[in-house]
Write a protein that binds this DNA or RNA. Sequence first.
RNA 1: GCGGAUAUGGUGAAGUGGUUAUCACCUGAGGUUUCCAACCUCAUGUCGUGGGUUCGAUUCCCGCUAUCCGCACCA
Length: 511
Amino acid sequence: MSAEDGLKKVISHAKEYGFVFPSSEIYDGLSAAYDYGQLGSELKNNLKQYWWTAMVRMNDNIVGIDAAIFMHPTTWKASGHVDAFNDPLIDNKNSKKRYRADVLIEEFIGKIESKINKDVAKGKKRFGDDFNEEEFRSTNPNVLRRQQKIDGINAKFKAAMDADDLAAVKALIEELEIACPISGSKNWTDVRQFNLMFKTELGAVSGDSGVVYLRPETAQGIFVNYLNVQKSGRMKLPFGIAQIGKAFRNEIIARQFIFRMREFEQMEMQFFVKPGTQEEWYNHWKEARKSWHASLGMGDENYRFHDHIKLAHYADAACDIEFNFPMGFKELEGIHSRTDFDLKSHEEHSGKKLRFFDPESKESFIPYVVETSIGLDRLFLAVLSNAYTEETLDSGATRTVLSIPPAIAPIKAAVLPLIKKDGLPEKAKEILDLLRINHNVQYDEKDAIGRRYRRQDAIGTPLCITVDHDSLNDNAVTVRERDGMTQERVAIADLASYVDSKVGMHTLFNK
RNA sequence: GCGGAUAUGGUGAAGUGGUUAUCACCUGAGGUUUCCAACCUCAUGUCGUGGGUUCGAUUCCCGCUAUCCGCACCA
């Protein structure tokens, strides 16, 4: 199966069986937005539960929170998001290069300024010690003409930016005949404002004072609650705060199914440590996260670990865990040593002390942070695309099966009466009630048994429990396993614990 | 965002400037049934959207929307 076909098939399959639908499809969809269907939401919930269990429940010193998506606007000044992503951008159609419009204009001004400086240098050379630079600048006609031009450009640019008039910015670039340094052409696209963050308004009445952003990362919800959690939970360093939640980024281009969406869900954990120990903890979490992924059994060869050479402004070490998606190896999870950048910045902006007092050394300091951040939607896509298999059986027949790790499969078991009479459906429904307390199970009596097996294969159900005529006498059923299609006779009395031993979440922790 | 391509039932495909648009799988109802997509009967459901050309457009042209591929973007 080629890579392209692979993703296409996964997308079709996901839609056909109720995992993922294009968002608001009856209105032609919305670009790069997708909805999780009846099976998709089950799978997604299971992934969340496995992550939360592994991070929060299995670690004494990690607790979870659920912070609001709306946050005080100053949060994003402190995090650097406001300044870093608020630029007017323009593309050159020939070279395909993207520039900041303000930078292009500034560079143009810079060229004029360098001409002025050349004139000044010439004057200096000519007049020697008698040269009065100030006088020269205020009287030389060439310099004055150039300075006037600069002032004119600046005034126009400022007026355009203040009025949010991006068309005027483009007009200015065209008027100045600014050319692309690479292609040399003046063939520009329109100027567009690039805002990473979605803006919305708090309060029913619109106005500047009520502008808030949809969070572009969940991490800041953790940082602003650092002190609350530390105090109320009596937490001692090192400790972690975990969170699962939606985040929003106005990506210029979002693509590749659910891999890059403008609305997505993150599972993040920020681990607060004593300064100087961050490297040790960074390595600890790198290993811990690797083995978490390995426990899902999706094949070690499908993972790659990529250390960042070039680091973001806040980090002193970073690595990606990449997965072999149908479109190639792509980032699935990031582990970053974020230093004290975030807490320090919040301390400055809020004026609140965000420190930890160490009773042993009797000193107080801003903790360092090691972050683990995984994209839930990407994890979902990893599981789904890895699970999708088309196989040809010995009989020559084909089947499509989702080999989802059993513990996170949307439906854990199907209960099937071999035929829908002779009291078999009644017996099957008794078994269904027995199992449904602990697991998501499904009943199906329509069509031949083989067809029902295939139907369950297609949605990744690990176990099929078949009730036959013997079951009425011997109180046992046939359990058929998804991947190997092997069968086993199990007493109904043992069934609940049997099923749990095969598909319970705990099975992932024994690996 | 640029360039290229595509858009026909739930899925995958065929087809046409002119009567009621075709097929497979899926789905639903009934029958049959004795462990891997069996069979029979019946049924539901499709030309993305808005314009234009035309006597007539699902088909040709343009815009929009969405998707795919490449490039670019992704602290």
